[in-house]
Structure formats: C-alpha cells, structure tokens
C-alpha cells in the first residue's frame, strides 16, 4: 500500500518539479503519526497546497490530529489508499502485474482482465484500443466516480475538517486533494508507461 502513496507523491513531484520540498515534508508527515496511516502525507500535501505549501503546516497538522477520530482516520486512510492504488494501477501497467501476497480486490480484478486479454490474443499483445476499452476505461470511470462521490467520507469528513481555522472552503481543499490523487492517472508519462509496459509484459508473458 505504501508503495502506491509513494508513487503518487513521486508522480506529483515529477509533474511539479519546483515542489520537491513537499515530498520531504510528506515523508516527515508519514513518520509523525501515532498510528501508521499512509494516506496522511497525501492529505497534508493537498492542505499545504492551499496556502503555498508551508505557511501553516501547524494548523493542518492540528486539524488532522485533533478533529479526526481514530476511527475516521482509519476509514479515510482506507479510502485514500484504495484510490491511490487505483491511480497507480492506471499510471503504470507493471503495477497491475506486481506480485502481492494479498492483492486488493481491484488489483486482482485488473490483473485477471489483463491476463485474460493476453490469453484470448494467444499471447500476442492486443491492440491498444482493446486494452483501453476493456481495462483502462472501466478503471478510470470507477476512480472518477469514487473520487467525486459527494457522499464519501472524504467529502463529508476529511475536506471540511482540513480547512477548519483557515479561510478556505472544503471544496477548494477537495479540488486540490482530488488533483493530487489524479496526478498518477493524468500524468503525461502514463501513455508512455502503458505503451512500453504492455509491450514488455506481453513479451514476458509469452516467453513465460
């Protein structure tokens, strides 16, 4: 799970090179919590973004620590990790075939579909359009639906909480947060990753 968050942050850093220091801060945030919540750096990452990043870290840290109950934090973290995973899967196909002892449901499904596609094409790499239609599009749609779900705990709990004692709106925070999550999916390198990654994967699968 942690890998996905890391990928997410790296993706963001790659896209916005000037914000490198944010990653360092994010690592600090990751270490600071009482319990291990890999989603926390992403949460604060977006929050600092509202104020030019470093001005009021204290407030956001406080908002996260004081106003979110452990149960909330856990649920939010779960949600973020899933979203981040989805975004990472979309960013690079090698993540889909990554070995994992206990893959998540979405990871497993994506993997099954990809393997199935390889099989029905008799080991040959299917057309890009086929992969796009059969795998990428459903994943993208699902991610977008989840990310913009107004009833989610992110909208209901996280976004309003993070902007307490600031002049920002939950919507402004939500926008930045979503943007951060979507980075992996939207970044330019995605297309390249998929073109090269698929080729590699299918060659490997054929020989394997």
């Amino acid at each position: 799970m942690n890998n996905y968050i890391k990928k997410m942050l790296n993706g963001y850093e790659e896209a916005f090179g000037e914000e490198k220091e944010l990653n360092d801060l994010a690592i600090e945030d990751l270490k600071s919590g009482e319990e291990f919540h890999p989603g926390k750096p992403l949460i604060l990452h977006a929050a600092y973004g509202l104020d030019g990043h470093t001005k009021r870290r204290g407030i956001y840290d406080g908002n996260y620590e004081l106003f979110l109950s452990p149960k909330d934090k856990k649920a939010i973290n779960q949600e973020i990790v899933e979203l981040a995973e989805m975004s990472a899967l979309l960013h690079d196909p090698s993540a889909i075939l990554e070995e994992s002892s206990s893959p998540s449901e979405q990871h497993a499904l994506a993997r099954e579909v990809l393997e199935h596609l390889a099989e029905i094409h008799e080991g040959q790499q299917p057309e890009e359009e086929v992969v796009q239609e059969m795998l990428i599009e459903p994943l993208v749609e699902h991610l977008l639906d989840r990310i913009f779900d107004r009833g989610s705990i992110l909208y209901g709990r996280l976004h309003p909480t993070m902007v307490k004692q600031t002049e920002h709106t939950p919507e402004a925070y939500g926008h930045l947060f979503n943007h951060t999550i979507l980075q992996g999916m939207m970044h330019q390198s995605r297309k390249k990753n998929w073109q090269q990654g698929l080729k590699k994967l299918f060659t490997k699968m054929k020989s394997g």
């Binding site: 106003f67 449901e105 499904l109 459903p138 639906d145 209901g156 709990r157 309003p160």
Partner: peptide, 28 residues
C-alpha cells in the same frame, strides 16, 4: 464529530465489477 457523522450519507458506490464488460467477466 457526532453531528458531522450524522451528516455523512452512506456510500452508494457501484462495485468495480459493474464497470467492466459483463461478457468479459463471465469468461474470466
């Protein structure tokens, strides 16, 4: 916190499977 929690609507997400092609899933 309690009040806030009451405000949160239950999730009505579609399952990831619902987004995939049904025939494809059946084959799998």
């Amino acid at each position: 916190q309690v009040r806030k929690k009451q405000l949160i609507k239950p999730l009505k997400q579609k399952h990831l499977k619902d987004y995939f092609d049904r025939d494809l899933l059946e084959e799998i």
